[in-house]
Design a protein around this nucleic acid. Structure first.
Lengths: 211, 211
DNA sequence: ACCTGAACACCGTTCAAGT
DNA sequence: ACCTGAACACCGTTCAAGT
């Protein structure tokens, strides 16, 4: 019953199993006791690899966020940079919708999160945006992405989709409804992103002309 | 020990006390047992007025969402309608930031939520937007509002604000930092909203010209 | 260093019993 | 109709004890 020659647990194994639980049963479905059972171990053992449950969730969050791409700011193309960032960010969140409420609530481990934020900010400034505007654009884009991931039809029921469905009752079958909701989700996000970028572009040229 | 002549509890009193707890100690701070203690009653008594904790949260959510204003679509001014909706929606969420993760996760009681969604959709269609576009615009706007409320500096720590702060170390004092974060929050939301509306306006005129 | 068993202080919800 | 006391099946976290 003492310590085994080779460790039964590792942070990576724990995070992976925990994410499986969250993906299938939601954030509330994850308990340290259940995770321990899945891993064939006692609850207390988990605390040899993780300070507490919150730290475990942050570890999962960091893994998910590592999929975000902030390399699109090549040769001063801020529009491409923002678009790449926003789309990959949204894709990462949609891959694990049940994690979104946790991810949206605060940053992950500070280093990597700050690194990404810096890449975006730096990319915008290098493209000619004033620092203050760069900050605002970074925040705005995040709003869009997090909001889109958060209120997507995948998570609970969306009023707007419901309105749409009510008006087109022939879409009543469950699977079609689901497919259409995804479609609306995707299109609404693209509309929001592209309209937003268009609005920014206008401001950008005004800014250039002003000096 | 039996039933009192006049009821000790009511749904309204419960919701109000529960919201106080959430506002001060967060969503995790709210437990049925603690709520009962605050109300000077036994836990089990709560279940005479509410089916479960989730229903209580929905009741609170409905109260908050009742502050949202969807009456801005007078005489076909969709821009004003969306702006009023978005700003009042955001204000309602910011008044109770700890409730945002719950509110963003799904609609409240179906009737009133649908009613609001319908007012927005109807307002857009009446202004000349095709139904499908109206659906997308409604969803997009919601993304912006929910994302803004969710990732605001009020809730945890924001990477983007952090970048900004790192570059302006003279803002290091806590209260100034807080004030600046609010300012950035407000400005980023306005930038996002106005840029988005500008982008939509362009699409709207293109749409008109096409026919 | 890492796993265990037992304990502590919590949860949400149910239900028979009271008036 | 509405409040109570007790119970059930859960939680996260700690810690001395084992090897």
């Amino acid at each position: 019953m003492g310590r085994p020659k080779t460790p039964l647990l590792s942070l990576a194994r724990m995070a992976s199993a925990a994410l499986d639980i969250v993906d299938t049963d939601g954030l509330d479905g994850l308990s340290m006791r259940r995770l321990a059972t899945v891993l064939g171990v006692q609850v207390a053992s988990l605390y040899n690899h993780v300070r507490n449950k919150d730290e475990l969730l942050h570890e999962i969050g960091n893994q998910i966020m590592s999929q975000v791409d902030v390399t699109g700011f090549r040769d001063g193309d801020w529009r491409e940079g923002i678009a790449t960032w926003a789309r990959s960010y949204r894709a990462a969140l949609r891959a694990h919708p049940n994690m979104v409420p946790f991810l949206a609530t605060g940053p992950g481990r500070r280093e990597t999160a700050l690194q990404r934020a810096n890449a975006v900010h730096g990319g915008l400034v290098a493209s000619g945006w004033p620092p203050r505007q760069a900050t605002l654009i970074g925040a705005s884009t995040k709003y869009l992405v997090v909001g889109a991931a958060m209120t997507s039809f995948g998570r609970g029921f969306d009023d707007d989709v419901q309105v749409y469905v009510d008006r087109y009752p022939h879409l009543g079958q469950a699977h079609k409804l689901r497919a259409h909701a995804d479609e609306i989700d995707d299109e609404a996000f693209e509309l929001a992103l592209l309209s937003f970028l268009d609005g920014l572009e206008r401001r950008f040229t005004e800014l250039r002309e002003a000096r």
